[in-house]
Amino acid sequence: MHDDHSEKHPGSTVSYVIGFLLSIVLTIIPLYVVLNHSFSNMILVYVIMIMAVLQFLIQLVFFMHIRESEEPHYNILAIALGIIFVFAIVAGSAWIMTFNSQVQ
């Protein structure tokens, strides 16, 4: 049962290649700085986390095409809300359980 008005899958080979190359770069940089201990641990953590978030955004935009859709962007809203909850879960747990560094 063929339907001739199937939606076009978003993106193009070019956009996928760009996303792939950017991801590789964003993987190599944190690897390099960590293995070479280019900064102190504190700074390293911030740097690699930022790289991770950037690479995550690349996945979302270039691979998962989160921005393409004529309909209301519920998926963007859902991911944004999800990120707020992720923050509550991870940061909240880390903060609440900080005393437990005495438990080994």
Binding site: I79, F85, A94, V103
Partner: peptide, 27 residues
């Protein structure tokens, strides 16, 4: 659209596992 929401749910599942790892990582 529903699958995106499922993915949000899975993100939270992994977030909880990450939180657990972060809390217990030095134990």
């Amino acid at each position: 659209a529903g699958f995106w929401i499922f993915l949000v749910q899975d993100v939270l599942l992994f977030a909880t596992l990450f939180a657990t790892y972060v809390v217990l990582r030095n134990h």
